[in-house]
Design a protein around this nucleic acid. Structure first.
Lengths: 138, 138
DNA sequence: GAACGAACTGCAAATCATTTGCAGTTCGTT
DNA sequence: AACGAACTGCAAATGATTTGCAGTTCGTTC
């Protein structure tokens, strides 16, 4: 807890009430959360939706959260460990929207090949898997 | 040209003026286009933006176009060949938004492994590469 | 521990992409 | 030529996200 606060301060930022509450919510959720989800998880009066949006932008710029695009037009975020780049993928159920984290990533080699072949620099990628989870198959 | 029209008809659909114009635009563009781009490429009075949105939904359902999400919150579409599933990826320049088509896809094996490991069925994936193109590096 | 300014906040209004309701139009068929 | 289902333009509705602004709060300074 004090670690998160410190990371925020390091970016010459203030640790306000709403921010503490939002960081706490993020810390309790290992899965990507949308701004709206974060907002409703906040204790009543815990902060405005616009405040959540603004903080997520800030945290993203500061490298404290990673933005994920799960294909439904809603941005989602996950807190990332210090020193980590948060790079990983998800397996999303198209029926219930459940999410499974996928740590494995075999893109490295292909990515480099593609970058070199096309003369691109600083190439990264975005990869998500979609399917139907065990429960939804019943 | 008659082929596209026929494919549309096959889905018991009408081939109207605006639709012909939109299909023509799509046929001339080998890269993903957004609804707005398609709309402005239309000859003046060639159709309403809502009409473009509606047709793209229809074409997507009919399997005539594939929707791509390049990460900027705007849906883009590409015409796909008959019999093809249109599966491929893109390398997008984060500076100028230029797009390079990537035919290669090494996901098959990993995808199956992930599906099996998590008990998911009908697993697909969405993958796009981002980087800085040669021109924008100068 | 009071004062100060930058950073932050809530709230409402503005944007942007996309969808939808509706009344009038057009295509393909009868 | 007539008919009904599809389709269209236009405007209004949605939904996510952003922004302007006036008031509030944090971290620092004295």
């Amino acid at each position: 807890m004090p670690r998160l606060a410190e990371r925020l301060r390091r970016n010459s930022r203030k640790l306000t009430g709403p921010r503490q509450a939002i960081l706490e919510i993020l810390r309790q959720h290992p899965h990507p959360m949308s701004n709206k989800e974060i907002h409703s998880a906040l204790p009543q009066g815990g902060g405005d939706l616009a405040t959540v949006y603004r903080l997520m932008h800030l945290l993203e710029k500061s490298g404290m959260v990673k933005r994920f695009d799960l294909g439904d037009g809603v941005a989602r975020f996950e807190l990332i460990e210090e020193g980590d780049d948060g790079h990983h993928h998800h397996l999303i159920c198209t029926r219930c929207s459940g999410v499974v984290e996928i740590e494995e990533c075999v893109m490295g080699e292909l990515e480099e090949k593609i970058a070199a072949r096309n003369g691109f620099k600083a190439v990264t990628h975005r990869l998500e898997f979609f399917g139907i989870c065990p429960d939804c198959q019943k």
